[in-house]
Structure formats: C-alpha cells, structure tokens
C-alpha cells in the first residue's frame, strides 16, 4: 500500500525555481494497476521518481505499507529500491558492456544473492520473457522490444511488489508495445502493483485506474473498468 499526502517537489533555487509537484495526495492499494497521464512537464515523471524513491520530495508525507519513507537513510532507500521496487524505463537503460544475463543479475548482485542462485533466477526470468536462448547476447544485439523485455526481467529479479514504468513503450513500435503491455498485464494478474507513466491513451487502457496530471497536480482520476479489455484495433 502506497500512500502520499500533499507531496511537493521544487527544483532549483532562488528565483529560478520550478514547482514540479504542488501537493499530490493519492493512495495506491496493493495489486493496483495505475496509469499516470498528462502533457510533458506536468510532473508525472517526477511523481514516479518520488514514488520510486529515486528522489526525495521537497515536502509532504510518503508511507509505504505504513512505514515513513521520508525518514529513511539513503542506503535504506537503496535497499528498498532493490527489494521492493522494479523499474522499467523508456530508453531501456541496459548496461551496454554486459550481456543480458549479467544485466538481469545486477539487482541480485546488490542484494547479495550467491552467483549460482542469481544465475538460475536470471535465466528463469529471461526464459519467461522469451529470451532464454540469448543469455550471452549484448543489449545492442537485440531489438527494442527485446531490450525492454530484458529490462522487465531485470525489474522482476528480486521479485518486487511494485513495478514503476516510465513510458515503457515510448521507444517501441506497435507490435512490441502490445507484447510489453501484455507482460505488464500478466504481472498485474500476479498481484503486483504497477504504476505506469504514459502519454498514449491506448497504453493507459490497460490500467485499472488513470490519474491525469497537469502543472504538478492531479486534475482528474478515473476508474477504467469499461476499458480494461483493450481493443487491439485501437492500437493498430
């Protein structure tokens, strides 16, 4: 359960400050699939960063399962990102110098998992996303969709409860986008919480709930019951 109250985030100092978030209050129950939409500069990515503990809010409260996140030390936040969260980015952010097996192993290395165990887990995850035959390939040898699947496998390495995805289909073609969203749907069915930032309505349809951001505030929230079954034609 994620609960934030009156979150604000101010960038810069003195006269040149930008208010990226101006008091955001929302709670995300476990197992929720939430999409965040809004024009660029609306603060949706900043919101995701704060939720993912990649950035501390300027003001406001943040509770994760009742625990006060703002009071945690940097290293405790690092452990939280490692154990509880998984991240998927628009530009994949794979390590170009390592093969994909190593990429998926990275969070496990920081978690202190033994080499044999983490290899087993990474192989299993990559097999699940259909890349079991290409463990030794470098990211540059894969297509965009495949790279994003590696990134998802990596996000799942420590079996986190929450997946944060920032425009995960932004760099992908339609076919790959559908594949990726189907994976997210499956993760949602596995009772994981998913928070996804997008500006494509077709992608937001997969979510059960959509928050609309504008100028650092939530301007609209709608449940998505009728849209939960996406019409593939809309994507085409």
């Amino acid at each position: 359960m994620i609960e934030v109250k009156e979150l604000t985030k101010v960038f810069g100092m003195g006269a040149a400050t930008v208010e990226a978030l101006r008091g955001v209050t929302v709670s995300i129950p476990d197992g929720d699939f939430m999409a965040i939409m809004g024009p660029s500069g609306s603060g949706k990515s900043t919101f995701l960063s704060v939720l993912g503990c990649l950035e501390r809010p300027t003001e406001g409260e943040y509770y994760l399962d009742g625990r006060d996140v703002n009071s945690l030390e940097d290293d405790e936040l690092a452990d939280m990102r490692n154990q509880r969260f998984g991240f998927v980015f628009q530009s994949f952010n794979l390590l170009p110098r390592h093969d994909i097996l190593r990429n998926v192993e990275m969070p496990l290395i920081y978690a202190g998992v033994s080499p044999a165990e983490r290899r087993r887990r990474a192989e299993k995850l990559l097999t699940q996303v259909g890349l079991g035959e290409r463990l030794k390939h470098k990211p540059s040898e894969l297509s965009g969709g495949e790279q994003q699947r590696v990134a998802i496998a990596r996000a799942l390495a420590n079996d986190p409860l929450v997946i944060f995805a920032d425009e995960p289909t932004g760099n992908l073609d339609t076919k790959s986008s559908i594949e990726i969203m189907e994976i997210f749907q499956k993760l949602h069915q596995d009772a994981r919480t998913i928070v996804l930032v997008t500006h494509e309505p077709e992608i937001a349809r997969y979510a059960g709930r959509v928050l609309y951001f504008r100028d650092g505030e939530i301007v609209k929230e709608e449940a998505n019951d009728e849209l939960r079954r996406p019409d593939p034609d809309c994507l085409g």
Partner: peptide, 16 residues
C-alpha cells in the same frame, strides 16, 4: 552518470 543513476535505481548503495 546515467548508468550510475540506473545502478542506484537497481539498488546499488553508496558504497557499491
């Protein structure tokens, strides 16, 4: 820098 940010997102501590 970007890679460092990523490693931190994946759970790298300051010491790592």
């Amino acid at each position: 820098t970007r890679e460092i940010g990523l490693l931190k997102a994946l759970g790298a501590r300051r010491r790592d």
